[in-house]
Design a protein around this nucleic acid. Structure first.
Lengths: 145, 145
DNA sequence: AGAATAACTTCGAAAAAGCAAGTTGAAAAT
DNA sequence: ATTTTCAACTTGCTTTTTCGAAGTTATTCT
């Protein structure tokens, strides 16, 4: 990856500064999506070629990892790396700004309140949950699907 | 502006999810740039057509304002709105992630230390300074240029 | 065995970005 | 007073990137 500069904001943008990367990470972090077709069907409808390309780039950059799903062999399970979990504060601040400025936001009031009153605790809770689900190597058989 | 969804992350991305908007805001917030040609010359070299387009869109979205420069009448002075200053935490978190993950980062160690040890204070300092420079309507005659 | 599911690829079309040159109006220089 | 320069755009064209529809391959379900 060739950088336009070593400005930290530019560095972050070179990884996620397109219309889709952050949305894929949102699906992984906040919506519990772990498989290709789940990303396709969720939210804003990425096209499959763009999704494939972004997943590849995110993996190359060490933001996510892929491996065979132990529950169903033909599927690939996508996981977050620590590097990606470190990005959580950025996503959270984006949620706060969006939640405050979009009148028709879908963010629950409760979430906004928690983010305002005790951001550190909220961050820790989400971070711990993500670490348990993504870094342990274990996998829960989600029979609700 | 037509939204793909009311997800707060998507909402934020619809405003700044391109390669240049955040960089222009960075120049305004962290590098003290206030004029068109300063944006052009700083950092990663936007083309003038893209810069013109982004400034227009940011103004339409209420993120920045433009007005005649009182020091030199032929210039236009760009300022941040409160809505944009509210975005500061997002930018700061991007700086932290970029500073931590880019080996060749240009972020001073001192800044990283402060961000880690007392983020709220740092935020407040920057926020107050920005409010004084951008929201007061006053303008300092910068004779260093 | 046939249909459905999952994860991609490929390729043409559309959108965005980039570049060079031109425009407008104020200010500085001659 | 006229010319030159500066600042902030605007326009038109080319290149690059992104997008979307359809096709491919391998696996699993019926």
């Amino acid at each position: 990856m060739e950088l336009r500069s070593h400005c930290p904001i530019n560095y972050t943008l070179e990884h996620f500064g397109d219309k889709w990367s952050f949305l894929i990470l949102r699906d992984l972090m906040f919506k519990g999506k772990r498989h290709y077709n789940e990303f396709l069907e969720a939210g804003e409808r990425v096209s499959t070629s763009v999704l494939g390309d972004r997943l590849k780039k995110l993996e190359e950059a060490g933001i996510i990892t892929k491996r065979e799903d132990t529950v169903k062999k033909s599927r690939i399970l996508y996981s977050l790396t620590q590097k990606c979990i470190d990005l959580l504060p950025v996503l959270l601040e984006m949620i706060i700004w969006g939640g405050e400025n979009d009148e028709g936001t879908e963010v629950p009031q409760e979430f906004m309140d928690q983010a305002r009153s005790n951001k550190e605790l909220l961050l820790k809770q989400i971070r711990d949950a993500l670490a348990a689900q993504h870094l342990s190597g274990q996998q829960v058989d989600d029979t609700s699907r």
